[in-house]
Simulated assay, not measured.
Amino acid sequence: MTISVLICDDSAMARKQMARTLPKEWDVEITYATNGAEGLDAIRAGKGEVVFLDLNMPVMDGYEVLQTVQQNDLPALIIVVSGDIQIKAHERVKALGALDFIQKPVSADAISNILQEYGILTLTQKDQVEDTPMIKVDMRDACQEIANVAMGRAADLLAKLLDVFVLLPIPNVNVLEVSELTMALKATEESSTVSALCQGFIGAGVAGEALLLFHDSSFQDMAKLMGVANPEDKQTEIEVLIDTGNVLIGAFLNGISEQLDMKFSQAHPVVLGRHCTVNDLIHDNSEKWHRTLAMEINYRIENHNIQCDLLLLFTEDSIPTLSYKLGYLLD
């Protein structure tokens, strides 16, 4: 008996990886959705007996889908597949009725084990194994999915260290000219002033800088969470900035290196500016930022006035190596 399977994820790369890792002998008909609203439409149309659901999506996220399915008692067995591996994320999706949780990037063994554990996997002998439907993945989409997984690794580490829940966005990935980067940085300005940290990194054929913009209004809350004795002390602010940068930048780069099978060396962090406007920060440092591949993530901590923006700026010369590595990952 053919089972209707729904893969709901805004990333084409993630949808392709998910479809490829389903057991080949599993008799299924696959439907794809690029956001939670599309996913709910598919479930209501009977196309989602088994659902593989991402959490961070536009229009409607995975939490909202789970809540709607639970409230309306819709017929769907939902397995969450996400880069957000925080313990509290696991707890929340289980409380909303998710069957189980698989962390990205997915593996065939993990999927097979869960399907067998819940008695969902019924194997049939097929005369011919069908190829995965053609799903087009461009470099921007692939980079966004790589950033999504790395973002989750960094958030998980921060959440464990501070015993908090980190609210995660959809990563913003673009190839930018320096003028466009200036506009992107200005767009992050929600508070009047920020303090900024920069840390260079280099690998085989890949180099760039990580930039952490820490909103000044966040310092006292973060210092208290870190257990710092004098949260209003000026030296404390620098320590908070550097400690936050070490956690987020280090874990993010490790997340990328694991996926692309490459190692990064990191330079010492440098404080670019303190209590300055984003405009001043750009003006003082724009000469060293040229055309770049930019990954931008805004981290916020639930129930705290803490917000920071992490930007990874890869040099233009890094793009061919990244394209090669991503192509290898997809093949």
Rank of each mutant, 00 (worst) to 15 (best):
V5D: 03
D9M: 06
K24I: 00
D27E: 10
G36N: 05
A42F: 04
K47W: 00
F52I: 02
L53K: 10
L53S: 06
L66W: 04
V69Q: 03
N72I: 03
P75Q: 03
A76H: 06
I79N: 02
I85T: 12
V93F: 01
F101K: 05
A108D: 11
A108G: 06
D109M: 09
A110D: 15
E117F: 11
L123K: 10
V129A: 09
D131K: 11
P133C: 08
K136E: 15
R140A: 11
Q144N: 09
Q144R: 05
V149S: 00
V149I: 01
A150W: 00
M151D: 07
D156S: 13
L158Q: 02
L158N: 02
K160R: 09
P171E: 03
N174P: 04
N174M: 15
L176V: 09
F201S: 08
G205N: 01
S217P: 07
G227E: 01
E232G: 14
E232T: 13
D233I: 01
K234M: 15
Q235R: 15
G250P: 05
G250H: 01
A251H: 06
F252T: 10
N254T: 01
I256L: 07
K263L: 15
S265D: 15
A267T: 14
P269M: 00
V270D: 10
H275W: 04
S286P: 06
E287T: 09
W289I: 13
H290R: 15
M295S: 09
E296V: 01
E296M: 14
E296K: 05
E296C: 04
R300N: 15
Q307V: 13
S318A: 12
L322K: 00
Y324A: 15
L326K: 05
L330A: 10
D331R: 10
